[in-house]
Nucleic acid binder design. Structure first.
Lengths: 340, 340
DNA sequence: TCAAAAGTGTTATCCTTACACCCATGT
DNA sequence: ACATGGGTGTAAGGATAACACTTTTGA
């Protein structure tokens, strides 16, 4: 009795593991930027393929890729998700075209990395890009984005209407309402991936058309033009990985003290608040935010002050990193706001 | 300018993707069981290797493996984590020995599946096993488990003491205290994986010795004997995947209504509470639990009663599944308890 | 009648949200 | 003086955790 009876090994078919990193950092006042590498007309994430002989772990391989391609050393890293579905694995140019029958199957493992402050890089092909370029509808800091009602809602309704079957239409509309906060539904900032996937399914993400053509074996260059309200497309499935990273980060903020990985050794409470706002895309209530930070006990005043603020000098704080190995720590519960 | 400059494809080396499922269901009164397949002396999870040509998605492949090996159709499924580190990928017997230089590199993708009620199966090799067999220290329903202080704490302290370097010793002790709630530290039920990994690192998980021997190219049968306080070992890295699944489920309970995937169409509030307790391994305060469930509005009384309770008949409830597509829903915040 | 399990009422305490207000700096 | 951003006080409302208590069944 020798189970499990694993099915025969597919020795002739090959699998390639693609590793990609969403590297986040703050740039300037309240801008969260992601590290990108230029690939032809589009941006992509730092990435590479795992070498089953040379690489000991995924994480070590990934760190090497990021440093090679961008010149940065990353600190905090966590795995996001492994995508294995056919048709979305649009391979990079170097790997040959996906249409061929003996082309390797590409499995894509995404990672999230956080580093304090986005320094400029000397690599010509590497650059920091505000994530709002890729997901304009995710930024509610200036109130509900107009693109939601002006572009996305009508386009989704049109797509839903042409589906076959009453039930399918209703289900699609319900999904759109829930995810994109239409008809008074509340916004859930964590569902970044679900929103992007709905747009992809509806053919509103520029990558969808490219993948459809490639699946049919047609010539399909990376999309060049795109509707700005629907965000800038990325190489391969990198925008999906970026969406996964942003979603994870937005969720994790609330139960683990990860924001501090994006801040330097000393920061003001406003810096902290701007960072959280840049990630969640939502404005926070200043006074209550400060009280909440105080209650957590995660930060400690340094008695030094930042005079560059334009108003009253702000006290500088530091993250009490020693708590991580001493006590169980949760993140920042976010005081919401009805009015600006 | 054609970046990213992905490093050369390792065409001669091969990668095999192993898919494994942690299938959870309730059995009897307050017992959460995981679906296992017997593999020699040890239990393993239903699993198989992904066929890059034949399988369209990971999830479809996984569902097929579970049905083939156990006869069950699973419903709710979510991906857990992808493990790629060398040395932990102890291959199954069928796949040849891992010591050979040209053996395929095994990457392990874990999944979590939930089904209502664990029916018996007719497959000889498939069986339901209470998860407490594998992680006895995770069950606090009867109070703090004695094994923690009697076996685990001394063993971890002994291991820590022989590490080289004052700092390493202190760090190991701090980790042990935090994870296993020693010296008055609070218990965090979600850190199932971290606890198992610490035990593995300290050589206290039976799988550790097996993997060390295999890494040295030695003969290493699956462990047969083991210390009951340290849990029953599993085939390959399956206990690590099970730990990941339990951790994910314990966390997810609190922010998504997933418990109901483990319950039938009609259940009493006590059934619901026993299910949550069986997963989290912690006793809950009855009255406050009921109030909390009521507040969420996730369930609806059916006006029917269960007379089999042994006391006053309990009202039957159903999960208002329709909420999932109508409104944003969160899970059950768990009212803790100091005293039994 | 009693044990067992279901289910209700009440209260102190803490957290959340919101409001109004004062403080220290540069121009 | 006043604009700008930093920082405090206070109070209503809701959630949490704990207490004691009543109700309905089977043995």
């Amino acid at each position: 009795m020798r189970a499990p009876p694993v099915n025969p090994l597919p020795l002739n078919a090959s699998v390639v593991i693609g590793l990609s990193a969403v590297v986040m950092a703050m740039r300037g006042e309240g801008e969260a930027a992601v590290l990108t590498v230029r690939a032809g007309p589009l941006a992509g994430l730092p990435s590479g393929s795992f070498d089953p002989v040379g690489h000991r772990t995924f994480e070590l391989a990934l760190r090497a890729f990021v440093t090679e391609q961008t010149g940065f050393e990353i600190g905090y890293v966590e795995q996001l998700y492994t995508f294995g579905d056919k048709g979305r694995d649009a391979p990079l140019a170097d790997l040959g075209d996906g249409a061929g029958a003996d082309a390797p199957r590409i499995v894509s493992v995404g990672y999230l990395a956080l580093t304090p402050v986005a320094e400029e890089t000397d690599r010509l092909a590497a650059d920091w890009a505000n994530w709002t370029r890729f997901f304009p509808w995710e930024d509610w800091r200036g109130g509900r984005p107009a693109v939601l009602d002006e572009v996305i809602a009508p386009a989704l309704r049109k797509w839903a209407a042409q589906l076959k079957g009453e039930a399918a239409v209703e289900q699609a509309l319900a999904r759109a309402r829930l995810l994109f906060a239409l008809d008074g539904a509340p916004w859930n900032e964590e569902r970044v991936l679900d929103r992007y996937e709905l747009l992809y399914e509806a053919g509103l993400a520029a990558e969808a058309e490219r993948d459809r053509r490639r699946a049919r074996g047609l010539e399909a260059p990376e999309p060049a033009g795109f509707h700005p309200a629907l965000g800038e497309p990325m190489v391969s499935d990198h925008r999906r990985i970026l969406a996964t990273g942003l979603a994870r980060l937005r969720g994790k903020l609330k139960y683990r003290p990860v924001v501090f990985e994006l801040l330097g050794a000393a920061f003001t409470l406003s810096d902290l608040q701007r960072t959280v706002e840049a990630i969640t895309g939502a404005p926070l209530h200043k006074q209550n935010f400060r009280r909440m930070v105080e209650r957590t006990g995660l930060v400690e005043g340094l008695g030094r002050f930042d005079v560059e603020t334009g108003g009253r000098p702000a006290e500088l704080f530091r993250f009490r990193r020693e708590l991580l190995s001493t006590a169980p720590v949760s993140g920042l519960s976010l005081p919401s706001m009805r009015e600006g």
